[in-house]
Design a protein around this nucleic acid. Structure first.
Length: 281
DNA sequence: TCTCAGGGGCGAT
DNA sequence: ATCGCCCCTGAG
């Protein structure tokens, strides 16, 4: 088994705290998937044990996905500006941001409107099992996230069986759009404002989902999604008027955390919703 | 049983 | 720029 030494890393909170919906916990290990890879992970103290399947030992992938290069202490010193953030950092020490694949992030968050996190995960797992390739991860069956092409050609009735309701249409149309537009290969090269404009052209993607993809899949540290919890953070902690429009709240928090709203926002998100990793796996 | 809200976004006004 | 509606599920 491969080992990476880490400092200031809280693996469970990163994997199941709402950034991603492809991770499960089984017998001491986290198992996750991309569109071409199954991953097995476990943290013990300052060591992360890991393996990738079916191609083994893809260390660069693990480093990129977990963002092991992020300077945690430096970021904390920049975002720890008030008692709410300070309390959140104490409650969720070593919370980290992930960088998922673009297509996985986008296609996952398309399922999220008006759904709670456990329900999103359930739908993603139903889709994985039905449409994803099965990979053997040291004896554990892991279903990969379905290829974009597969989702695009799957009948709507089948997609509806994942419990995603009206979101099925945008899932299918977005999969087609990704193939036709080639956006997945282009968006990584774009600056954030352009990437956001491109994302919002997609049916089913508005302000919030666009910001989710920018934050959790494209690695922009200066933005953060504002969902219903984010709105509560803005109004309850920072006294913004509840009628404030999304764009104005977004500008406010981007300015407040000055380059690191992704991190500040994630700490406050877990804090205000009372995330408990023990009961979320 | 019923209501309500859940990591929103669209399309008609 | 608002606003009703979209589909499904679990909690109360």
């Amino acid at each position: 088994m491969n080992v990476l030494n880490v400092e200031n890393y809280n693996l469970p909170v990163a994997l199941i705290g709402g950034q991603s919906f492809v991770w499960e916990f089984d017998d001491g290990w986290f198992y996750g998937a991309t569109q071409d890879k199954a991953i097995k992970l476990k943290q013990e103290g300052d060591k992360i044990f890991w393996q990738t399947f079916p191609e083994n030992n893809d260390e660069q992938f693990i480093k990129d996905y977990l963002r092991l290069g992020a300077d945690y202490n430096s970021i904390i010193s920049k975002i720890n500006k008030d008692s709410y953030v300070d309390s959140a950092i104490q409650k969720y020490p070593n919370l980290r941001l992930l960088k998922q694949d673009f297509s996985v992030g986008l296609l996952s968050f398309l399922l999220s409107p008006q759904k709670a996190i456990p329900l999103i995960r359930r739908s993603v797992f139903a889709m994985k099992k039905e449409l994803g390739e099965k990979v053997d991860a040291d004896g554990k069956d892991v279903y990969l996230f379905p290829k974009t092409e597969i989702i695009a050609e799957t009948p709507l009735e089948k997609l509806l069986s994942f419990g995603i309701g009206y979101r099925a249409k945008s899932l299918k149309s977005t999969a087609k759009y990704l193939i036709d537009s080639g956006l997945a290969g282009e968006i990584e090269k774009m600056a954030e404002p352009e990437a956001r404009i491109e994302l919002k052209k997609i049916k089913g993607v508005g302000d919030k989902i666009a910001d989710c993809v920018l934050t959790y899949s494209l690695g922009y540290d200066h933005v953060t999604p504002l969902d219903v919890w984010g709105m509560r953070i803005m109004t309850q902690y920072y006294n913004l008027d509840p009628k404030t429009k999304y764009e104005d709240m977004r500008k406010w928090i981007i300015d407040y955390f000055d380059g690191f709203a992704a991190w500040g926002g994630q700490f406050l998100f877990e804090y205000i919703r009372g995330f408990d990793p023990e009961t979320s796996v």
